[in-house]
């Protein structure tokens, strides 16, 4: 069963690879050609020729680092506050977070654009990352993780004289390491693949992210599918690498964290 399901998962990826190796005419063939008649890597060359790949990777990576770093910090603080602290209005405030999660992102386009403009951030890398830092999703995910950590750990640390921040930083954060790793993967993914917001907020070529560059490749008339697939294939490789690196963390991290005992 696992094998069958996995095959269904891998099919689109395989299709991307095969399309990337076709000629443009063959990629439009009806009925579709599955295996290219003669393999060509022209599409990869065209991809590198037509967009500034290195610059785009740099912009995408910078935005990703700001967004992931900012989100992990800000959301884990908030999540811990919501999970373990009592303060007036806690439920109302957490409700606000949930509402933000529930509103479709397209709703915020115009207002967030105006905000970035008044902050003088139009067409900058921080503007690409900023809205994603304040993530209701991340807060929610980490709150669930903090809530399932037994209370004894905090009490032990409190008896040792640690203050709230120390407890959070030294005791609780390591406990939710696997969730942090999972959130890193998911946020990295959203950040890396996000199209509409970066496209709207940036305008110069120097601040073009990978998906924006790929979308730009789709001309007005007709589409060069092999180049598009070659590009998107290359674009997803770094993400897969991040995933492989971090999956060990979040799938295996628990065993050593002491939660077991």
């Amino acid at each position: 069963m696992l094998v069958v399901a996995a095959a269904a998962m891998v099919f689109p990826f395989l299709w991307q690879l095969l399309t990337a190796l076709k000629t443009v005419a063959e990629s439009r063939a009806v009925p579709p050609v599955f295996f290219p008649s003669d393999l060509t890597v022209d599409a990869f060359a065209r991809f590198f020729d037509s967009v500034p790949v290195v610059g785009m990777v740099g912009v995408s990576a910078a935005a990703l680092v700001i967004r992931v770093g900012g989100q992990l910090l800000i959301c884990s603080l908030a999540a811990y506050g919501f999970a373990r602290m009592t303060f007036p209005g806690r439920n109302v405030l957490f409700g606000l977070f949930l509402i933000m999660l529930m509103a479709p992102s397209q709703l915020f386009l115009i207002a967030q654009f105006d905000l970035m403009k008044s902050l003088g951030l139009l067409d900058t890398i921080p503007a690409i990352a900023l809205p994603g830092i304040f993530s209701a999703f991340g807060t929610f995910l980490l709150r669930q993780a903090f809530m399932s950590v037994p209370k004894e750990f905090e009490e032990a640390a409190r008896l040792d004289g640690a203050n709230a921040f120390q407890i959070f930083w030294r005791v609780m954060l390591p406990m939710v390491g696997p969730t942090l790793a999972a959130l890193t993967v998911l946020t990295a993914l959203y950040s890396w693949n996000d199209l509409l917001w970066p496209l709207i907020i940036t305008s110069s070529k120097e601040n073009m992210t990978l998906p924006v560059g790929l979308a730009t490749l789709q001309g007005q008339y007709g589409t060069d599918y092999p180049t598009l697939m070659a590009g998107s294939l290359l674009a997803s490789l770094p993400l897969i690498a991040v995933f492989i690196a971090l999956q060990r963390q979040f799938f295996a991290g628990i065993a050593s964290s002491g939660l077991k005992g």
């Binding site: 386009l109 139009l122 496209l199 110069s204 490749l217 789709q218």
Partner: peptide, 25 residues
């Protein structure tokens, strides 16, 4: 002159947002 190329599918959304914000090309 700086050329700004945007994909056709999102060209109009972007133009609308930036025009109402006063920063269209």
């Amino acid at each position: 002159v700086q050329l700004q190329v945007n994909p056709f599918t999102d060209y109009w959304t972007k133009l609308q947002v930036s025009a109402q914000g006063g920063t269209a090309p």
